[in-house]
Design a protein around this nucleic acid. Structure first.
Lengths: 155, 155
DNA sequence: CGCCGAAGGTTTGGCGGCAAACCAGTTGCC
DNA sequence: GGCAACTGGTTTGCCGCCAAACCTTCGGCG
């Protein structure tokens, strides 16, 4: 078994974080970490990570999108997108076709199976999202806007 | 060169995110991502990632801490801590000694050089932190508390 | 027309992280 | 006192991601 990072050994309560205690960046990582794990775990653990989900979601909403545009949308390098998409294609979830207007680029679309599995994932994703919303309460909207601001302005 | 994820190609403005647009988890990742990159880049790019910084900070504030406790504090698996610490030791920044009371565990301390480099890193870290604080404005405290809540309750 | 720089995609190499298996030492319990 | 469960640490294997180099295609411009 891997280490249980969440376990609150009474002893650990005494660990001092120093300046770290008030660093946004540090807690941003902790929160993202927890969120990521929670999602991956509850999403059937069938190796359907958040990455695949986000990619498929964007493809669904933008049929015919090309790889680099997808990469920019989900903030992944194109060299990360390539194998990710290839794997999805191998599983028969997305189709790739060379664009007729620009033979460099490849257009992406969800297959029937892709739509179906995405719908499945959406169930888990929505549940995860609700959990987070519940934790944040009324201030969710403000919180979200702040996250956007950070991502935007920290370009 | 790697892809420029921040570039706002006018074309990309039209990419639709669908439900993703309001998912906390998604934006949490984007924000963390941006923060991480910004830190790593400005911190002299001398391969002093946020990871090393957080670890050294905790060791500084808790001299004699053992590896698993450190791991829990910064939310890293023990199998991640081992090589991380070994590298810091190799660079002469931390000292490792077997505990006398429990011969399984290894106690950690910063060396002189370690203290010095940490002080150096703190300059960048503080700057990074200030940038984030500036983005968040008055509501920084609330935001921080919400991040803590997410990390805590999403155990 | 022909060239050259830019852009989309893939490949390769490296890094950081987790999980599981394992060893050594410790603790609890009968 | 001795065995079983647990704990700290390391090793190994894998995965996700980035950066850089490279190939192909596109597009502007002399």
């Amino acid at each position: 078994m891997a280490q249980d990072r969440s376990a609150a050994k009474p002893h650990d309560a005494e660990v001092r974080l120093g300046p770290l205690r008030n660093f946004i960046a540090f807690h941003l990582r902790l929160a993202q970490d927890a969120s990521f794990r929670s999602f991956a775990q509850n999403a059937g653990r069938r190796r359907w990570g958040p990455g695949n989900f986000a990619a498929m979601m964007v493809i669904r909403k933008n049929p015919g999108i090309i790889q680099v545009a997808l990469g920019r949308a989900i903030s992944r390098d194109k060299s990360t997108v390539t194998p990710l998409i290839q794997e999805l294609q191998r599983r028969g979830l997305v189709s790739r076709r060379r664009s007729t207007s620009d033979r460099r680029s490849i257009t992406l679309e969800l297959t029937r199976a892709g739509e179906a599995t995405l719908e499945d994932l959406l169930v888990h994703a929505r549940a995860h999202n609700r959990r987070l919303d519940a934790i944040l309460g009324k201030q969710k909207a403000v919180f979200l806007e702040q996250l956007r601001k950070i991502a935007d302005e920290l370009a």
